[in-house]
Design a protein around this nucleic acid. Structure first.
Length: 260
DNA sequence: ATGGCCGAGCTCCTCGGA
């Protein structure tokens, strides 16, 4: 079973690239973030023609998430249960596999702008809400995968400039403590379960030739629960789509799980 | 030089992103 996550930064713009990518990478499930479109604008038919069903939680202009899957997604939940939110940032679904079911949670974490701002305060509240809810989800379904754009670096390996960006947004101790607290629920960063190339990133700014200079951040993750950890066969970042015409600033991350 | 580049929208400037 292959699960992927990709912040597409407008599905209206990126749909052709998503279809091309799925043709080349026929994963079982693809989680999208930053759709930037309302549900009525979602390209259900084009994705169905490509062999994917869609569970969609859209929003006009900002945010918006979706789970595309080859098999039907069940028990769909939108946003964090118990945390009131105007923004469409989370969609969860149960997927059936030949070896049983698993819970897939797709999240577009709050950016947070800068420490000390209202947006940063919202990010901290949101992270608290997410952790509290995920604890319940894990109790109900121990086979859980949390994917998405986390907008936080785990540690200095995940940034092109650990010293220069210390305690700036995506790098603060406070954000990283929240990320560690998520791992404390019994989750594992699938990417770090394996040897990886130095300076592996999943996002590069559009400015300053950042991709060409590999000045990026790793902020897109696939976290697997204790019960699924032994099943993870690989986790890779696919940098190829960043070379496309009109690319998203993020690239896909793919995990291969063998649930036997 | 605190910018640079993108996408969206009550679009020709402003906001948000990371």
């Amino acid at each position: 079973m292959k699960i992927a996550t990709w912040n597409v930064n407008s599905l209206a713009v990126r749909l052709p690239q998503v279809l091309d990518w799925l043709a080349a990478n026929p994963v079982d499930a693809l989680c999208l973030q930053e759709l930037k479109l309302s549900d009525d604008k979602f390209p259900l038919e084009a994705l169905a023609a490509a062999g994917y069903q869609s569970a969609v939680f859209g929003q006009k202009t900002y945010n918006g998430v979706a789970i595309l899957s080859r098999n039907p997604a069940r028990n769909i939940v939108k946003n964090i249960v118990g945390f009131s939110d105007e923004q469409s940032r989370v969609i969860a679904a149960t997927l059936d596999t030949p070896q049983g079911e698993l819970r897939l949670v797709n999240s577009y974490f709050v950016n947070g702008q800068a420490p000390g701002t209202d947006k940063f305060a919202y990010k901290m509240k949101w992270l608290e809400g997410l952790r509290s809810w995920l604890g319940q989800e894990l109790a109900a379904q121990p086979k859980l995968v949390l994917v998405g754009d986390f907008n936080i670096t785990f540690d200095d390996r995940d940034t092109y400039d650990a010293e220069g960006l210390r305690e700036t947004i995506h790098h603060t101790t406070e954000e990283r403590e929240h990320l560690k607290a998520l791992l404390g629920l019994g989750l594992h960063d699938a990417f770090r379960l394996f040897e990886q190339p130095e300076k592996s990133y999943s996002w590069w700014d559009y400015r300053e030739f950042a991709f060409r200079r590999n000045r990026g951040l790793r902020i897109d993750y696939i976290l697997v629960s204790d019960a699924l950890k032994p099943a993870v066969q690989s986790c890779v970042i696919d940098k190829l789509p960043r070379k496309n015409e009109r690319p998203s600033d993020h690239v896909p991350v793919i995990a291969h799980l063998d649930l036997l």
